[in-house]
Structures are given as structure tokens and as C-alpha cells.
Design a binder for these strands. Sequence first.
DNA 1: TGTACATCAGTGAACGCGCGTTCACTGATGTAC
DNA 2: TGTACATCAGTGAACGCGCGTTCACTGATGTAC
Lengths: 228, 228
Amino acid sequence: MSESGPMTGTRAESGALTGTRAARAAETEVALKEAAIRVFGRVGYLRAKITDITAEAGRAAGSFYSHFDSKEQLLEALLVDMLEAGDRSAEQSGHNPDFSDFEAVRWHIAQLWALLTTNGAVIVALQQAAIVNEHFARRQQELMAPMFEDMAAHLDYVTAAGGHLPGDRMAVATAMVMLMSQYAYAWLEGWPQSSGPRPTADEAVDMLASFILNGIMGPIPPSRAATS
Amino acid sequence: MSESGPMTGTRAESGALTGTRAARAAETEVALKEAAIRVFGRVGYLRAKITDITAEAGRAAGSFYSHFDSKEQLLEALLVDMLEAGDRSAEQSGHNPDFSDFEAVRWHIAQLWALLTTNGAVIVALQQAAIVNEHFARRQQELMAPMFEDMAAHLDYVTAAGGHLPGDRMAVATAMVMLMSQYAYAWLEGWPQSSGPRPTADEAVDMLASFILNGIMGPIPPSRAATS
DNA sequence: TGTACATCAGTGAACGCGCGTTCACTGATGTAC
DNA sequence: TGTACATCAGTGAACGCGCGTTCACTGATGTAC
């Protein structure tokens, strides 16, 4: 027994390139996806070359096509992964839909913030892909539509609580989503570059929550705004 | 005198392709720029091919390079045109910087709205170019930086008037710019597509003005919000 | 005013670069007997 | 358990498409004398 069996020995020694065929293929697919996310984050989806991704994953160029038909299909796969993970985490949370309440607004913003910071590369990739590709333009709409509807529904609580929306409920919902997502994007990009230290994530979420609650309802009591 | 002179006759007859050499070249350059704006508006900057632009302008492909070194340099020229026009119109307007006043806020939003609707194609082209090109990423920052600074300065009037900003002045200024520009973009794109009629430009500007004034200060008197 | 030549805006076919995609090949894994 | 063959993940050089860019050419405009 000074030598292990030929197969098991080979497996243990050559690391990532061993295992059953199926396992090895699955490993490579995951490696390609993870590499893609890193490359997208570094140079953006539109500038990312197939060979950038395979190089980042430590594979040959041709290997890519054993797993994906194209860069588009890879992005689609990443989107599916993201949405599955999102569905799983969304199930458990019974949330408060009453947007006349500061904590409810803040909770929703924090949720969106978490989504953007954990899946930033994929979401920004989708945004970029939507610019040059009809399919992803539609996909982006499909992702945003429920957000608009969701926000609009939450705004009805504001009206019910005697708040005075600044305009049409759908227009206000659209403005809210645009504000949240774009401010988050600017924050991730480090805008504006000129001035002092950028806010922490918590400060940013607080600011947005106060801004939006004031915007849709009127000022919140200073005590709550200061302590949250 | 039954025949006009050979040159003047030729000029009058063959329309756009006549005149002095310099004039003819200038005409073509203008035609290419205008064609580019139309093509950018239709398919976007990133998808626009040089031959799309020359075809739209009714010229041969090679003609492009008598006037511009590349698509990038053409966009740069369009930006310069836009900024020159912007400077000219900005000079004449003595504006009210006091953002505790509804009309001042509304006026600024209307200004930005006008800028985006008249130069939408070029501004969106810049946004797209900034994604894949370092030069235009910097150019975009240069264009936005004064807006952030300007808004932040205006916000100081809010604090002076006893208003309570929802966060750091620069963060709030950033949020305002993001809200205005992105809502305008969404409006131009017809988002959200699902629901009923989108607001008119005036309604959109009113909504943004109320949203922002509430957001940065507290609610405006209902009478003013309703009448403006 | 007329002629001969120079210049230049514009033309469009051809060229060539960059990058996505293919494919003959390798060596390890899986299967049959 | 051992041998012979089949299958398949992965390789990387080569291919080829799309589009930016060039360039020899045309015909009109400008200049010289």
C-alpha cells in the first residue's frame, strides 16, 4: 500500500482537473461564471472578451463553448442564478408595505441596496447589455416592471394615511425606483469624485429613506430621522 | 443672357453638392453631424456604424474621414457644439438660487429637462460612450461635476431657511441630480411600459419639483403645489 | 476671355484588424468483456 | 483484475465575419498665365 490506486491517486494529485467527468465539467462551468462576474466588474460587460473570461478562469478559449453558446447566453445564465437566489431569500421575509412608515421605507431601500451591492456586476452587465441587445432590453423591463408595481402599491398606503403624493402614483413610483437604483450606482462608482468622503452604506440608505419619505409624504419627526 | 454663367448655373442647379469647396465641405460636415444625431437617437451610439451615419447623410463611406478621425471624434465635436450652445443660452438667465423656494427648484428642473429633451441623443450617446471609453468617462464626470456643486450650493439656502436636509449636502445633491436625470431618461424611454398614459413634460417637471422640495425641506403648502 | 494645370471634396471597392467561433487533437475517464 | 476501445472535457491554433479604415480614382472648383 505504499502506492495508492492509479485513479484515486491521480484525482487527489491534480486538484481542480480531476473527479468524475460531470463534476469536472460542472467545476469549469462555475469557474467560468465566477470569472465572468469578476471580469464584468473590472472592465464591464460590453468590453469583456470571451478570452478575458476564459483566461480569468484559467481555461483555454475553446472551453467556453462547451458550456455556453455565447457571451449573451452566459449573462442569461447569471441572471437566472441571481433571480433564483433572490426568490429564495424573498420567501422568508414578511415585510411591511405601509410606506407612510419610515421603517417600512427604509427596509425596502436597504433590501434594494443589498441586492445591488451583492449582485452589482450582473445588474450593471444587464444594464449594459440592454443598450445593444433587444433581448436584454426586454429582460431589464421584466425585472423592473414588478418593482414599479410594487412601489406604486406601497404608495397607496401613503394616500390612505392622508399623505399628499407629489404626482401620479405610477410616476412617483418610477421616480423612486430611479432615485434608489441610480443613487446606488453613483455610490458604487464613487461619484461625485471631487468632494470629501462618500457616505457609508448605512448613511446612504438613511439619506434615501428620509429623502423619499419626505418627498412622498412630508417631513418625518426630527427625532426619528436623527436616531434611525 | 439667355444662359447664365457656367459656374453660377451649375451651383444653382445641383443643389447641396455645389458652392465653393469650403462651403460644400462645411455642408457635408453638418450633414454628417445631423445624420449622426438621428442615427444615435434611433439605434444608440454603441450600435451606430460609420456607414449608418454616412448612408443617413447620403454620402459615401470614405467621406466620413475627410471630416472626422473616428466615431469618437465625431461625438466629441457634437459635445463641443452642445456645450457652446448651452453656454450661450446660460449667459442670459439670472436665476434664483434659493432652493427653499418652489419656483426656484421648478425652474432648475425645467432647465435640465429642456437640456435633456433638446440634446437627448448626444447626452445619451455620451453616457453610452463612457461605458467603453475612458476619455468619455472623464468627459461625463467633467459635465456632471459642476451640476453636483451647483446643486449643493443651492441646498445651502435650504439649511439657511431652517430646512432639514435628509443627509450630507453633497450626497443629497448627488441624489437630486440622479433623480432628475434618470427620471427624465425613463420618461424619454416611455417607462414603465405596462401602465396607462405617461405624464406630460409639465406634469413630470411639477412632480419632480414637489418630490424634491418635499424631500429636501418638508411639504410645500398644498395650494402652491396644486396650482403650479 | 480662354486654356492648361493643380487642388480638393467626395466615391466606393478593397484591405486588414480584432475577436468570436470552430475543429482536429490530447489525455483522462468510463465501459465492455 | 486486466485489456481494448469509446467517450468526452478541455486545448489552442486557425479560420472567417463584420466593420473600421484606406486609397486610387472622378469630376468639379480654383489658379496661373
